[in-house]
Design a protein around this nucleic acid. Structure first.
Length: 809
RNA sequence: GCCGCUGUGGUGAAAUUGGUAUACACGCAAGACUUAAAAUCUUGUGCUCUUAAAAAGCGUGUGGGUUCGACCCCCGCCAGCGGCACCA
């Protein structure tokens, strides 16, 4: 009986007409619950299984919470700026605006078909000028607080296509389009000082309820390490080299390093600087070998460069530094394992106590001096540090360098400032104006939004600039400060910019005067549960927390809530039937729409929730899906048999009542913890126990309610047959009857030396009587046989659970 | 390389978080219904030994440890997966 299409059409229409069912109330006496799922990038290929899985997980929870009587905010929107749409637009010669409209329309329809109970009155779209007005406004606040600045930063550059490439477009160091070698090229970019918030972002985690692995991922990404900055004097430089170093703000007379081990300074026998370091570039001017090495480096990614297993490469810079501890002259080398983007772009090398330094020293024949007696953890060969342990030595050395004025205690972070510029069309224009008189000036807030103009061609220009730079009417403007002739910034923002704060806009999506009203944010913040993928646990989540914390410092968001998300849940990946990641090239892509057409939406939803734990990786398996279909068919048939049955065979059947009440209790707890797979297993067991009985109207309604969050169409249809009005999705969640949660008897396992050998059934009120139970155990025939003539050495009783007899054999 | 995760039957998985290992489901086998097939229903199903049953032994990637008792905690190893800043 393939009647699911009919039911889906009927109730889909009904929910559309009764949109108030799923609307969040801004003014309610109920408890609020803000449930957020990551909004999708609306790609042209439509909603994929990963979306369907994630959103179903959120939807089940939202439906469950509504039935529990909470005021649920469960919104949806579109993270619609981005490279794929831009590339598609270039290829098809179409407007990204139009493509986006088509894609979001398709996604919305697919989501409605899958019965996601989103509050569509709050839909947002990051490409909507009334939305990105506030994304631009946030940027201006960052600039005004000194947290956005211009800096030369490398991009991937294809010399043949003459355009900048995203990392994803670089495959094996080659341009994805034409196959030529990609190199690095420095261009001036907007950078946001997220490092300023590094400590706050670590500390703030304490106020959240993220799962441990997410907290750990964030802490590791920020990567705080304590140590010291030390200056080394550079010897025998030509006169021209005392120029200021633009990258590091220090004179090249000195080389500054960060080290976590200042205690090993006496063992520093050479230094290594990054090939991008100012000093390296300076020396390359008159040296072909160095020049060649630097250009080789440009072809490598950071990942390749820092790989420990690879052979170290390097070139001598022809310069020496003075080790401030002992006055020794030590050579300065250039090597790509040192990154310009981390620390100061220079390190002191202590080959005796660092693996990478040791490898490098051995390869290039550099001196190795041991400064630790490893056995006794005592310093050697280090004058005033000799005999100290590591902790004492670090402290003493920091004191010494501070006194001498050559260094200080400091922290270093793995986290780098955030490159905020993209030389692309399809993004938020950065609302800045470059004035020859005043420098960089933000657009005045009344002029926001700076609307993305429509252009003829979306390709980046061949000098690496955004296509916006070709539109004279956009570029030419007046300086907001002095009114003189000036030029607009033509770079756009990264995707993260729009997705940083979208959860705030859902709260007050149509507000024209502020990004969201304080009052409403006070009510709805923080997000109670944020569901998304593992892949966003670091970048998106960190950027978003950073922007929220920045807005908090500005007083834009409520003082009471220093963190945006209370709980973060990351769902697993769904692999193809071949256990491989789904991809078009592998031909293993499952399209939820197609499966739903075949088996019905309820089956697909329930199967996805049943296939495994919500947070683990699982492979799609259509055989197992059939099991869910069978269950739903049996469930439907069972309920239909109950309709119009006024009497109940089970009203006085305690065993059945206990099973029913335990199931309600378990499912309620499991839903709360997103353990949907076991919640569904509970439903299956319940149906197995009840089949064949007439259970009466009230218990029948309970069953329909329990299944409603998972199978909303079938549940609504059955509810209508039972009630003739209303919607099961706002019906009250079943409650348990305490008298049926008490077991009258329990089974106690009996083990000998930890191995189960027998069992004992006993009334619940006797479980605390240890003597009685041990007595009964010793009368058990199997146990008598097992013990034989051996001695019982120890008797352990875990009340209500088990007895373990330790027997000397 | 760095960081993180995972490893349980033929398969997806469960285990009240240190107390009956394999719930629920798939698959498979046998049977019922049917002219037949599909669907549906019933029964069985970790492995070894056994005609069968009973009994016993083995069993949560691997080697050790802690414990009366370990899938769970600790140490080492092996295998697989994910992220690594311009895909989002």
């Amino acid at each position: 009986m393939e009647n699911f299409r009919e039911i889906e059409n009927k109730w889909g229409k009904f929910w559309e007409e009764h949109s108030e069912l799923y609307q969040a109330d801004n003014d309610s006496e109920k408890n609020k619950k803000y449930i957020l799922v990551e909004f999708p990038y609306p790609s042209g290929s439509g909603l994929h299984v990963g979306h369907a899985f994630s959103f179903t997980g959120g939807d089940v929870y939202a439906r469950f919470k509504r039935m529990q009587g909470e005021n649920v905010l469960f919104p949806m929107g579109w993270d619609a700026f981005g490279l794929p749409t831009e590339n598609y637009a270039i290829k098809m010669k179409r407007k990204p605006q139009e493509v986006t409209k088509e894609n979001t329309d398709m996604f919305r329809k697919q989501m409605k078909d899958l019965a996601f109970s989103f509050d569509w009155s709050r839909e947002v779209n990051t490409t909507d000028p009334s939305y990105y007005k506030w994304t631009q406004w946030i940027f201006i606040q960052l600039f005004n607080k000194g947290l956005a600045y211009k800096k030369e930063m490398p991009i991937n550059w294809c010399p043949s296509c003459k355009i900048g490439l995203a990392n994803e477009e670089v495959v094996d160091g080659k341009c994805e389009r034409c196959g030529s070698e990609v190199s690095r090229r420095n261009i001036s970019q907007w950078v946001v000082r997220i490092t300023e918030y590094a400590d706050k972002l670590i500390e703030g985690l304490e106020k959240t309820n993220f799962i441990e692995k997410v907290k750990q991922a964030q802490i590791n990404w920020i990567g705080k390490s304590e140590g010291a900055k030390i200056k080394f004097k550079v010897k025998s430089l030509s006169s021209s080299s005392s120029s200021r170093d633009a990258m590091h703000g220090v004179s090249t007379d000195y080389l500054e390093v960060f080290t976590t081990r200042p205690d090993t300074l006496f063992g520093a026998t050479f230094m290594v600087i990054a090939p991008e370091h100012e000093l390296a570039l300076e020396m390359a001017k008159n040296n072909e070998e160095i020049k060649k090495y630097i250009s080789e480096t440009r072809k490598k990614s950071d990942l390749e460069r820092t790989e420990l297993s690879k052979d170290k490469t390097g070139v001598f810079s022809r310069l020496y530094a003075i080790n401030p501890a002992n006055g020794k002259e030590i050579p300065i080398w250039i090597s790509d394992f040192v990154l310009a983007s981390y620390g100061t772009g220079a390190i002191m090398s202590v080959p005796a106590h660092d693996e990478r330094d040791e490898e490098f020293a051995k390869k290039f024949g550099l001196e190795i001096i041991s400064v630790y007696d490893e056995k006794n953890n005592k310093v050697l060969n280090s004058e005033f540090l000799n005999g100290l342990n590591k902790k004492e030595a670090i402290k003493k050395m920091i004191e010494w360098i501070s006194e001498k004025g050559i260094g200080e205690k400091t922290s270093s972070y793995h986290l780098r400032d955030w490159i905020f510029s993209r030389q692309h069309y399809w993004g938020e224009p950065i609302p800045m104006v470059n004035c020859p008189e005043c420098g960089w000036v933000p657009v005045s807030e009344e002029q926001l939004p700076i609307v993305l103009p429509e252009v003829g061609a979306y390709e980046p220009t061949d000098d690496g600039k955004s296509p916006l730079s070709k539109i004279e009417s956009f570029v030419k403007t007046k300086c907001p400060k002095c009114g003189g002739e000036a030029e607009r910034e033509t770079d756009t923002m990264p995707n993260w910019a729009g997705s940083d704060w979208y959860f705030l806009r859902y709260i007050d999506p149509h507000n024209d005067t502020v990004l969201a009203s304080q009052e409403l944010m006070k009510y709805w913040c923080p997000v109670d549960v944020y569901i998304g993928g593992d892949e966003h646990n670091v970048l998106h989540l960190l950027y978003s927390r950073f922007i929220y914390k920045f807005l908090w410092d500005l007083g834009v968001v409520p003082k009471e809530q220093p963190e945006p998300y209370y709980k973060r849940l990351s769902h697993g990946v769904i692999l193809g039937p071949d256990n491989q990641r789904m991809s078009k090239s592998k031909g293993n892509v499952i399209v939820p729409e197609v499966v739903a057409d075949k088996y019905g939406v309820d089956v697909v939803r329930m199967y996805m929730m049943f296939m495994g734990p919500f947070d683990s990786t699982m492979a799609w398996n259509e055989n197992t899906l059939m099991g869910v279909k069978r269950f739903l068919d049996r469930f439907e048939q069972f309920i239909k048999l109950q309709i119009n049955q006024t009497e109940s065979e089970t009203a006085k059947n305690r065993e059945i009542k206990v099973i029913l009440n335990k199931t309600i209790k378990n499912i309620t707890e499991m839903n709360e913890q997103f353990k949907y797979n076991t919640a569904i297993a509970q439903m299956m067991e319940l149906l197995n126990s009840l089949s064949g009985y007439k259970i009466g109207v009230e218990d029948t309604k309970t069953l329909v309610k329990l299944i409603a969050p998972f199978a909303p169409y079938i549940a609504e249809e059955l509810w209508y047959k039972l009630e003739n009005e209303g919607s099961v999705h706002v019906a009250e969640w079943p409650k348990t009857d305490p008298q049926y949660l008490i077991e009258e008897e329990v089974m106690i396992m009996i083990a000998i030396n930890g191995k189960t050998r027998s069992e004992l059934k006993i009334e619940t009120d006797k479980i605390d009587n240890k003597d009685l139970i041990l007595d009964l155990v010793k009368k058990d025939e199997k146990i008598i046989k097992w013990i034989g003539t051996n001695d019982i050495v120890k008797e352990i009783y875990i009340p209500g659970k088990m007895v373990n007899l330790v027997v000397k054999l």
